[in-house]
């Protein structure tokens, strides 16, 4: 199996457990395919926030969407609250989707422009015929209050009358009314100004605590991901490079790519030393990913082994896992060996 391994999966109360997820898209009729996600495994424990980071096109959104089975993955297993989603059909699938929700990057275009905001938030309850109409109204108003939108104004206004940050709050409210277990947030703050971004991040943290949510948080901004996540998975070209608790990952990046990513973040401090990164170029096309380690075309430490053998995720101890033949440092004692599935 050429996946990146499953050594990092845990035994705890996983709300979501993804194994060997593969998602491929055909390229026109050329017979070629985009290897958007190539055999990744993940788990998210109850109440945890899993951060997914990586550069554009590495397959973050595809991972998020294929968890929702939108569209169904090419292969692999997705177990959500003990249920294998890839086997679910029709009504059962629709029901499962109410327990996991998604929030998208572009807050304005993900809301129906013609409808009143309160109706947009109410809609999932109507579709699922939850409670009496009085009860629905109560839930919607409470949730709107929780996300900081005046229910009165929401009843009178359409999405375009709200700012980007407010629209994102509205999307969040809409995702909450069905009382989901899991919310997949796909770059929820990337389109927002930093001041508004902070508001939305704080809100997500509050709601997560209050509603007991489990989150998958997708973003390309590492500082944001670090702030909201308990555990972070770094992706590159459809594979997972490194998984660790968020503080540990940033303190001791072990995969060369993670290190480069962290060093590239511009720090708002002129006295901070500027890292002139030694990696060059851009990620190769996911249509023809390089053999061996997918990072080998840009990695300063790549050698022949990297160009032929795919590294498997291995345990560095303390919940820190890396898929690299030559990890940068070994944070704790190197307990695991190359895992074999």
């Amino acid at each position: 199996m050429a996946g990146t391994g499953k050594a990092h999966l845990r035994d705890g109360d996983a709300v979501l457990r993804v194994e060997d997820l593969v998602m491929e898209f055909p390229v026109g009729r050329t017979g070629l395919k985009v290897n958007a996600v190539s055999g990744i495994s993940l788990d998210v424990l109850r109440g945890e926030t899993l951060g997914l980071v990586g550069e554009s096109g590495c397959g973050k959104s595809t991972t998020g969407r294929s968890v929702m089975q939108l569209p169904r993955p090419t292969s692999g297993s997705v177990v959500f609250e003990g249920q294998e989603l890839t086997a679910l059909q029709g009504g059962a699938m629709r029901e499962a989707r109410t327990r996991m929700q998604m929030i998208f990057q572009d807050p304005i275009s993900s809301l129906n422009p013609r409808r009143k905001v309160r109706d947009i938030v109410m809609e999932p309850l109507n579709i699922w015929k939850r409670g009496s109409s009085a009860e629905r109204a109560k839930v919607v108003d409470a949730v709107l209050e929780d996300v900081g939108i005046d229910p009165q104004r929401a009843a009178e206004s359409q999405p375009h009358q709200f700012s980007g940050g407010q629209c994102q709050r509205i999307s969040i409210a809409r995702s909450l009314v069905l009382d989901p277990t899991l919310i997949i947030c796909d770059e929820p703050v990337s389109a927002l100004d930093v001041s508004v971004q902070a508001q939305v991040i704080n809100l997500l943290e509050e709601l997560k605590a209050r509603y007991g949510l489990t989150l998958v948080f997708i973003a390309h901004d590492l500082a944001v991901v670090k702030n909201v996540s308990d555990r972070v998975a770094v992706m590159y070209l459809g594979k997972i490079c490194e998984v660790a608790s968020s503080d540990d990952l940033y303190a001791r990046p072990s995969h060369p790519y993670t290190k480069v990513l962290i060093d590239s973040i511009p720090v708002p401090d002129p006295m901070a030393e500027l890292h002139h990164s030694d990696i060059v170029g851009e990620p190769p096309s996911p249509v023809l990913p390089p053999p061996g380690c997918r990072f080998n075309t840009r990695c300063p430490n790549a050698d022949d082994l990297c160009r032929t053998d795919e590294p498997q995720l291995r345990d560095l101890g303390g919940g820190h896992f890396v898929a690299c033949h030559h990890p940068l440092e070994t944070p704790v004692s190197l307990t695991g060996t190359v895992s074999s599935n």
Partner: peptide, 25 residues
Amino acid sequence: KSLLRSIPKLDEPSHTRLATIPGRP
């Protein structure tokens, strides 16, 4: 100052509460 404070920093532990600027420009 407020703008700078609202940015998540890499050297802060995760789940550090962010300072915000209410409202909009």
